[in-house]
Design a binder for these strands. Structure first.
Lengths: 368, 368
DNA sequence: GGCGTCAGTGCAATCGATTACGTGGTGACG
DNA sequence: CGTCACCACGTAATCGATTGCACTGACGCC
């Protein structure tokens, strides 16, 4: 009945509005107790549903609470309970389309478990990330989820001594004993290479992400390993350094074009980079996938919007958010276990769209 | 010196790590007081920088705080101060690319003023929005920013009796006395129409957003008013009902195509819709802007990524977020003024890219 | 009828900070 | 040398909830 106050609020048009106390002073538990003629202890118990109060006592409390539009203060409760039921979530950059889906899923999962999310976007700035971390610790969040992949070694190290449980998402700090939920980046990149090679591509370019991204290494490793396995000479894999954003993809591709486009396929660290590549190719009049294939990674919404639609290796973003919250919540509910470091690596799957196709044959091979 | 703890944390590699008390029990102000040999009142005063303590007292307190890695509990402080320095922010949908930029700007502005942001994404669900509202009130946020445009009449009404100050962003509930920061939607849409008409277009389509969006009305009004002013017969303005998302744009455009494409230009409620339109047009082999021009609204990042790059009417998203926070903070710092309802309407500017061009002449005009 | 049991409540301590008010000590000045 | 002002600091109340423990009746049993 009263377990969804929002519903009550939305639906209640006919009833008389509850008398609203002065804005400055919301009703406290004491006000309710006085009005119901009981002690604050009883109010607390009735509202929490513990003990078995006499029916009319309960009714009186409920009525008083209703009449005063009483809402327990989360602040006071947090102080007393020594937990805020709030989880901190720090993301690399909320403007990067990769994160909103993760945030949404995490938020949903958290709410399902009775937690709220305090969000912080680091905007690619390590200092800001650490600042949020401090802020959240000061706000006494019960746990933290770090989905920020560009921290320095020392910062990662610091997490291990964090005063609150931490789960790392979408990053894989090496040598730091902490629970991690991430994608099988190496496998995904390998899949990406195999897809291109399967289409007949033999000369490839790989536009890497920003160096600090922990996923950058594994992805490139996986990609180049698959190339080696397929017998592609190292010289035929052009390695470029992007920044994980649109501009980097654009810039690197222009370099490639300036080089006379020595490859038939371009793989990218992520979709944003790939979309930048697509754009540069189009400006130069290079057709995709006829002349050159492009493949991304992440599967952000815009990947399906661009022309040609981007073939990509999808990450299970929502799943990552959900799992991170669940792991964290589980650790919080069973503090005796602690968060024993565990690494969950979600598989990545190929999402084939329009930007990849069979390798153009003969044209440039003849020149070699 | 100690005013940026994050900096101290990041930079401090050489120093010995402060002795970290048991995870379960962080140092409290009493621990610091004991160690420094003073009372908690003095610790509080020294750390807050009020009064003028004897130099060695201050030094002792600072040293003790440092040694214990003391962090004041935001929870306890909030309870005592009766303010949390937290602002609630409810957005329509964090996955809609429009919002992250607004959120980022709001967050930045808030942090600059010493506030944190508690974010809630309603995911287009009014109930969820109201639920967040309740949650945030329970968490005792100092104020709320509602950037959720699909509330019902009653919900908007409820805001006026809200126990905390509210600022509405990117929505314009009619008849609700509340501070609003929004765009000049009508003027922007007018500009959109004028742009198309200036290019020679005389038969236009407008794909509206979801009916509940408060911006939907003004935008369509502005657009059709401009058409009227230009002497375009009402029959030559085709009105379609989208949903403010990719799918709606796609669907409406397909309908238009099924009708034999009776127009030379399509204006859309927002960019996401326009991108859906572009996609449908391309599938049907209709060239943009050669055959049909398309214009969006908002100027999300992806607008510049798609092909052809989308001409659009830009909203000052960051500015909106910033202003909302500033207005709210100002109201909070001067509670005597209250939040006197005020409507700020930011201008929208035309961002001309590739998806609009001169109207094709003669082809279909001959049929008329 | 006395007494143990137990259900239903109330009392008061507690969480960790802030701050009004009170107090002891020092210096200045008559 | 007494007194007064004032500085630096401590004492204790307070914010609003939760909860261990104590208390009060009612009831049952011998």
């Amino acid at each position: 009945m009263t377990d969804d106050p929002a519903a009550a609020r939305v639906g209640a048009d006919g009833e008389a509005p509850p008398e609203r106390p002065d804005v400055a002073g919301r009703a406290t538990i004491r006000d309710v107790a006085t009005r119901a003629g009981v002690s604050t202890a009883t109010v607390s118990r009735v509202l929490a549903g513990i003990g078995n109060p006499k029916p009319d006592t309960a009714a009186a409390v409920l009525a008083a609470a209703e009449a005063l539009d009483y809402r327990p203060s989360g602040v006071a409760r947090s102080l007393r309970m020594r937990r805020t039921r709030t989880l901190g979530l720090i993301v690399t950059d909320i403007q990067n389309p990769f994160f909103p889906e993760l945030v949404q899923a995490a938020d949903l999962a958290a709410r399902g478990l009775g937690y709220s999310i305090l969000l912080g976007s680091a905007a690619y700035d390590e200092h800001r990330a650490m600042h949020y971390l401090d802020l959240m610790v000061d706000r006494r969040v019960d746990g933290m989820i770090i989905a920020s992949s560009q921290l320095s070694r020392e910062s990662w190290q610091w997490l291990t001594t964090s005063p609150v449980p931490v789960v790392v998402v979408n990053a894989e700090p090496s040598g730091v004993p902490v629970t991690v939920v991430t994608s099988d980046n190496e496998g995904g990149a390998r899949r990406s290479a195999e897809h291109l090679i399967g289409l007949g591509h033999r000369r490839l370019a790989y536009i890497r992400g920003y160096e600090g991204f922990t996923a950058d290494g594994p992805r490139f490793e996986g990609f180049s390993a698959a190339c080696r396995d397929a017998g592609i000479p190292a010289a035929d894999l052009v390695e470029l350094r992007g920044d994980g954003q649109f501009e980097g993809g654009e810039r690197c591709t222009r370099e490639l074009i300036a080089l006379g486009m020595p490859v038939t396929a371009i793989a990218c660290h992520n979709d944003t980079t790939a979309i930048g590549a697509l754009r540069a190719l189009r400006s130069a009049g290079v057709r995709v996938p006829d002349d050159v294939s492009v493949i991304g990674c992440d599967d952000i919404a815009a990947a399906a919007w661009v022309v040609p639609a981007l073939t990509t290796i999808a990450q299970q973003k929502a799943e990552m958010g959900r799992l991170a919250v669940e792991r964290l919540a589980a650790a919080l509910d069973h503090p005796e276990h602690g968060v024993e470091p565990e690494t969950i690596r979600l598989p990545m799957v190929l999402r084939e769209r329009e930007s990849t196709g069979p390798a153009r044959v003969g044209v440039r091979t003849g020149a070699a």
